[in-house]
Every structure is written in structure tokens, then in C-alpha cells.
Design a binder for these strands. Sequence first.
DNA 1: TTGTAGGCGTTATCAT
DNA 2: ATGATAACGCCTACAA
Lengths: 331, 331
Amino acid sequence: MSYALSGKRHVAPSTRRRIQDVIDELGYRPNAAARALKEGRTRTIGLVIPPAGNRLTHMQLDFVASVVDAAARVDLDVLLSSSGGDHDRSFERLVSEYRVDGVILMEIRLEDPRVGRLQKAGLPFVGIGHTAGDQQMPWIDVDYAGLIQHCVRHLADLGHRRVALVTRSPELIAAGYGPARRAREGFETALTERGLDGIEVPCGDDARSGQECVEALLRSHPDLTAVTTINEAALPGIQRALADTGLEVPYDFSITGVAARTWAEDFRPPLTAADVPAQEMGEKAVSLLVERIASPDTPPRHILLTPPISLRSSTAAAPTPWPSRVDRAAH
Amino acid sequence: MSYALSGKRHVAPSTRRRIQDVIDELGYRPNAAARALKEGRTRTIGLVIPPAGNRLTHMQLDFVASVVDAAARVDLDVLLSSSGGDHDRSFERLVSEYRVDGVILMEIRLEDPRVGRLQKAGLPFVGIGHTAGDQQMPWIDVDYAGLIQHCVRHLADLGHRRVALVTRSPELIAAGYGPARRAREGFETALTERGLDGIEVPCGDDARSGQECVEALLRSHPDLTAVTTINEAALPGIQRALADTGLEVPYDFSITGVAARTWAEDFRPPLTAADVPAQEMGEKAVSLLVERIASPDTPPRHILLTPPISLRSSTAAAPTPWPSRVDRAAH
DNA sequence: TTGTAGGCGTTATCAT
DNA sequence: ATGATAACGCCTACAA
């Protein structure tokens, strides 16, 4: 077939013309599978998302969208696969049938069997999140420990003495979910450092859980004056529970944490929080993967993102314990 | 190669054993591209999502997740592609390089060039949403017209005389976005039918826009007592604008519309709304597509979903015009 | 029951 | 400058 006219070698205008006519007449379209077979690569990357049961958070959604975007920019297609749950077949197909040139693995667990699987298959991949061990793999992660530590310090500086950390669901924690674990580390570090009282509570990824969780918290710890969280989906519920209890943010109660920018800005009042740079993560993940595909034997790079904490309006000085709520009227 | 032992024909245990040994030793793994080339199908479907710029709504997200899920259940992979914006190359690759066996096309416009493109390519597809013309294509859609009509009737029954329809963004409407158009039809039908005053306002897909939009609405139409909407992303803003104005839902003001179940339930108070059955739509879309791929010449089926309107707590009798807000204290 | 050959559509190489 | 040919890996029909 005289198809080397994809610019590879020189061709006479007349021939080019003739070929074009044939293409038009026969409605010729190139076949990706044949090309993939010949070239040994698919120009497709796999994106492994958490199972659909656990609905994706905004952060994750933004991340997926930005991966698709970044991939499209370098002419890569994205094959979606949810792993975990009952359809691990999908993941297995991805890694074992040469369907993709590389994989982006979301929601890595501290001990994650998928990592070993990918390594055994020799398929290039980058993780979103990192495992506990020192496994040789490239990853991108958000520095939850540092961020939460920073948040708690901020609260301590404002005079809060007892703060709570609202983390993710019990199941996720039990499964060894990195961000939850590392948020805890940062939380405890800051607690010790500043001599604060802290309480950590797991919380489902939805408004209802957030509400119940904070209600319970306020009942059991009436002296609580601040919360920090990595659970953005719980935020509307947290807000609601506070409002229902008659606590006004930030005068009576401070909130801070890490969340997608939209959520932080949509919070009322706007949330003092580290804005997870989902867009940036998506772009970096793709370029890291592309790099990895090109040279699989380079030592893996790690990118730990520490977005700045945007000071908005959800944190303020701790209410003075006694007499309490009238104080601020005096200002 | 002697591995028609994928169950096709009978094979002696000894041979099978021998082959298995070789497989293990060489680390043989089947190659999807080769299979696709031979079989003439890819076992992959394409899912065309709106461009990442416009962040996906929860409805859309739920839909994507359920498509991935349903596809996995029948061992199909999902190739993601965002169309519109600047990366139409991605869409073009999808339709013209035999990368997928069929396509699910989200966010169909009333006049949508992609439909013609797919038809010309002879690629099976199903649309989420339908075009204006009588184009021969299978689709699944939500009956926005009927739903909004129903919502307005409900408001009329409750005594509301002037209601607003909060629709989607001006750009989307200008682009001929079906749901916006059809919501308008239903709105106007109900208005005429019941002799109500109505006003339709476009609104961006985010909380901020929702808030601004309702604030403007309340300024320009002080006698407004109810809103119906198809813009779920605007809901938090609508809620906020009302609260800021001191209007209590549902006593002073009623809200209803169509939204993902989560949003309706998370609304405060819980929203009387038609819950978009995203999950069901995803499953149906996949099975419609599979059917279509199997027999492309069958006349295309259409599925118009009319989910029931769940009566929750965001609608109530219109406040009596004069004297107004004290009335309900008397109850 | 098992081995072998040919072709799916592409592209790279070799010959013209 | 262009036409012919082989090979990527899988599947299947046919031969042994």
C-alpha cells in the first residue's frame, strides 16, 4: 500500500493526488488496531478510577477531566477502568492484553496489590498517591500530612485548644488509604508540637455523614472550637450541623482543611483551605507517564504537591471560653 | 499456533499441559490489538463527554460512572473522549480509526454536527439527548418538557401565580442545548395552561451564578414566590440567595425542578424534584449500544425517561400576598 | 487430535 | 520516486 505519504518520504504531487482520489472513492480510513499491532504501541493510556459505587468526589472528577484533557493535547486516548469491587476483570484486561501503553492509577492504598501487578506486567504506570513501602514507582501525591499539620498550627495560633480532624470513611481507613493515614500523622504531629487536644473521627463521603459526624462531635465534646478536614464531600453537612446548633463560622467555630477550590469557594463563609490542584495533578500525571513510557528504566520520579493554604473566611480566633458568645458583639 | 484451546476444540491433557508450560515460561499474554485486527472489533466503546472546561455536573458524573460500570459488566472497555473545545482531534480519532465498536454521545445539541459525522462513518452510536430533526438515531433522554410542565402545574396547584424557570448558561442555550429548549417548552405550556406569569432566566452552572441569578430575580420581580429549575449546579446558590434575603423555604418560597437524587436530598429542605435516573440511563445506554452494534440495521429505538417527581419539602402553598410573612406564624 | 498456513491493515525495507 | 513484500500476533480453516 502506497501509504507512506503520511509525510515519511517524498512523493510526487501527481501520485499524491491519485492516492487521495482512491481514498475518497473507497472511503478509506486507517485502522488503529493494525497500526498498534505493527508499531507495538496503542497511543492509549489507561486511567484506573475507584469503583463507581463510591461516587467520585469533585477533586477526583476534576482530576479525571484534566487527565483526559492533557492526554488529548498530546494525542493520547484514555481508556477508563474501574478497579476494586467485582469488576477486576477490567483492570486485568488493561494490564495484561497490551491495550494501553501505560496506566495512571488513582487512589493508591498503602498496601496496594495493583502496584505489584503492574510491576510484574512491566507496564509503565504512575500512581496518584503512594504506597507505604519504598516500592520503586513514580507517583504524584498531595502532602496531606504537611497540609493538615499546617492547618492545625494555624488553628493553634488562633487560640484553639481542642480541634477535631474529620477524615474519610471507616472502610477507606481500614483499607489503608494513604491520605487518611498521612492526615492523621500531620494532625498528631501538630497536636504534640502545640500541646493541643485532638480527636480524629472517620466520616463517610457525603453531606449526611458530615452532618451526623459533627453533631455527634459537638455532643461529645462541647468545648470543641475547630475542625480540620480532608473530606470535602462532608463539608456541606459540617456546615449544616454547625448552623443547626447555632454556631456561627468563624466567630464561634473555625473550619479548615483541604478541598477542591470550587468547594472551598462555595462554602459559606469561603473556606480557609489548601486547594487541591487537580488540574495540575492531571497534567503532571500525564507528562510523568509519557516520560515513563519513553524511558522505562529511568529512576522513578516523585512529585509531592504542597498547595498553599488560601486564607479565606472560615477561621478566626477561638471564642473566649467565658463569657462566650457575646464577646464579638463588643467588637 | 496451537492455542485454539481457548475452548474451541478438544485437546489432549498432555498437550494442554505442554502449552501451559510454554505460556508460563515465556510470560505469554494475548495482544488485544492483534485480536481486534483479526476479529474486526475492539471490544471497546467510546464515551464522548462534554469538554473538561465546563466542569461536569453530578448528573453527568453519575452517568459516566454507571456507563463504565455497565460496560465492565459485559466485558467492554470504555474509551473516553471529550469533544468540543479545541480537541476535536480526539473525537475524530474515535470515529475514524476503528478504535471503538460504538459510541455513546453525551450532551447532544438540537443541531449536532457530531451526529452527522457518526452517521457518515457508519459507526453505531446512541445519543444522550436528542436532536431537533427527525434524524434516524437511537437516543435516551429525560423528558424535561414534561417534567418542568409537571413541576409548574404543581406550583400552580399550590397557588403560586408568578414563577421563574432557572435554566442553563446562555452559551448552552445559544448552542441549541436540548434540555434548555425543551424545559422552556414545558414551562410555557404549563404557564398558558394555568394562566400564570412566568419568567425564564439563564444561569451559569455553578453556585455563584445561581445566587446572582436569584438575587437579580428577586429584585426585579418582588412578587415571585417560586422557582423551578433544571440547573442542579445552581441549587446551592439559589438556596443561599433565598436565605440571605430572609426567605424561608418552603413557607415563603417554593423550589422544585429536576436534579440528581443526591442533590435533591442534600438540599435544605430536601428538594421536591424529579430525580434524574443517571444510573438507569447509563445501563440503558450501554445495552442500547450493544444491541445497536449487534444489529445496526434495526430501526433505532428511543427511550424517553420520565422519572416521578419526588415530593419532599421544598414546595408549599404560596404565601398569601398581604399581609405576608406573619401568616404562617398563626398556624 | 494436532500442526500449518494465510490474512486481517499497517508500516518499514528493499528493489525497481 | 514509487511499487512490491514481509512481519507485527491472533484466529481459523484445512491438512495431516
